[in-house]
């Protein structure tokens, strides 16, 4: 079958980890891909520069949602510095599926949102 839709991707899509919102939270950011309508929001609760808790909500294709779920598992309990250093390749490696140029934006939306939250942005600078 499809290399893109391996069982672990579908599992994260059907049973997303850390799904929901955090109230209260220290950081929150939301963004979407206008082209396909994928949308992700990530909330962070911090303690001494470390991600004590993380949650996401969103809608969109399986790749974008599974990627967000996997990303929350990667960074929970890690420091904000760890998140700031995280690269696109790190996340793509963790997904472990061949992402074509057309689907890269789907796969990386969650990382974009997490980075913005980690840097404490409330919206993208002009």
């Amino acid at each position: 079958m499809s290399d893109l839709y391996r069982e672990h991707i579908l599992d994260h899509y059907r049973n997303p980890r850390n799904y929901g919102t955090l109230e209260p939270h220290d950081r929150s950011f939301e963004d979407s891909n206008p082209l396909c309508g994928d949308r992700i929001r990530i909330d962070l609760r911090l303690k001494d520069g470390t991600i004590e808790d993380i949650a996401f909500t969103g809608r969109g294709c399986a790749i974008s949602q599974a990627s967000a779920s996997i990303l929350t598992e990667m960074v929970k309990g890690q420091s904000l510095d760890f998140v700031k250093e995280l690269t696109a390749e790190d996340l793509l490696d963790e997904l472990g599926i061949p992402i074509s140029p057309a689907r890269r934006k789907c796969a990386l939306l969650s990382l974009k949102v997490l980075k913005a939250a980690a840097y404490g942005l409330s919206e993208w600078p002009e």
């Binding site: 839709y5 396909c36 994928d38 790749i63 689907r103 789907c106």
Partner: peptide
């Protein structure tokens, strides 16, 4: 199922369709 996922699976079967707005 998000249309991009429909198109993604069809693509792996060699079928080219469009998905989006």
């Amino acid at each position: 199922v998000h249309p991009h996922d429909i198109a993604g699976i069809l693509d792996s079967e060699g079928i080219a369709i469009r998905a989006g707005h």
